[in-house]
Simulated assay, not measured.
Amino acid sequence: MNVLTIENLKKNIGRNEIIKNVNLTIDEGEILGLLGKNGAGKTTIIRMIVGLIKPTKGKIFIMGHNVEKNIETALKNVGSIVENPDLYGYMTGRENLKQIARMYKNISKERIEKIIEIIDLNSDIDKKVKKYSLGMKQRLGLGQALLSNPKLLILDEPTNGLDPIGIIEFRDIIKKISLDGTAVLISSHILSEIQNICTKVAFIDKGEIKSIDTLDKDNTSLEEKFIDIIGGGKVNVI
């Protein structure tokens, strides 16, 4: 089933067309990487998906609900970290989760405990967030995004600034989530991270999707595909 469907999406700022006729679908359990250079349009697409900005043309459907016409129902199916997660440093990790849970209906204590287990913060969940490492804060932010058991998880450059251990821990959590049927959209400019976590990749350049490929982890490297499709430029390849 299509969790996310994007049809002929365009965004103009003045006379400049910064997103050009984008079409994408993500099915249950898929992890799709939106890969492009800095400034390629990745974050603009994500901001349109979550309703922060409106498209100039085109349609976005989440679980069949049109984001523009029925945004509240559509976004009930979405968890996201679009920028840095909003965390209260003076609260504990558990208190942060409870604070977010109040925004939803029927988030049980059992669901909160399940999330703590998923993000692997059991031993640190009752510590003040101001004492957390960056990786722990990212995992807590992910936990907030997962509280409502979303069908679609959207992550914009989620591993920026993380050390190698933090990246591995975050990656493992995302893979486990997808196995339960959650569709995941990850925006990144880090080739290796897309290679290691995603099942599909959409190459974007200057607001246009150039190609959508299923990742073959055994043969052609993502770096070779990127250079072939988009060319060289400022992209992190490690």
Rank of each mutant, 00 (worst) to 15 (best):
I112P: 09
A101I: 06
G41R: 06
N77R: 06
L134D: 03
D120V: 10
I204E: 08
T182M: 04
K37D: 12
G181S: 10
G231R: 03
P55W: 05
I173Y: 05
G51S: 01
L215D: 02
N21H: 10
V50C: 11
G166S: 03
E72C: 14
G79N: 11
I212W: 07
N8H: 14
M1W: 08
G33Y: 11
G135T: 10
E169P: 08
L9E: 02
K20H: 05
P158S: 01
I31A: 00
R171Y: 06
S187A: 15
L222P: 08
T44S: 12
L140P: 02
P164M: 04
K210G: 03
L185D: 02
K11V: 10
R111Q: 09
I53F: 07
E30Q: 13
R171E: 04
M1I: 10
E113R: 12
F226V: 04
E28F: 13
A145C: 03
I100F: 15
N66H: 10
H189Y: 04
D120K: 15
R111D: 09
L134P: 08
N70A: 13
K137S: 01
T43I: 04
I46N: 00
K76L: 05
V235S: 05
T214A: 12
V201W: 01
I100Y: 15
G135E: 05
N96Y: 11
F203C: 04
N160K: 03
G29N: 01
E7A: 13
G143E: 03
K59F: 11
I177S: 01
N38I: 01
L222F: 08
K109Y: 11
G58R: 11
I31V: 04
K137Q: 08
Q144K: 14
G166E: 08
K69T: 10
K37V: 13
K200C: 07
L34H: 03
K59Q: 08
L140E: 02
K175I: 03
V129A: 12
I118P: 05
G41S: 11
K175G: 06
E68R: 14
D156V: 08
I19V: 14
I204W: 11
I6H: 07
E110A: 14
G79H: 06
T43N: 08
E169N: 14
N160V: 07
R102V: 09
E30I: 03
D216E: 09
I238S: 15
S123E: 15
V3Y: 10
K210H: 09
R47P: 00
G93P: 02
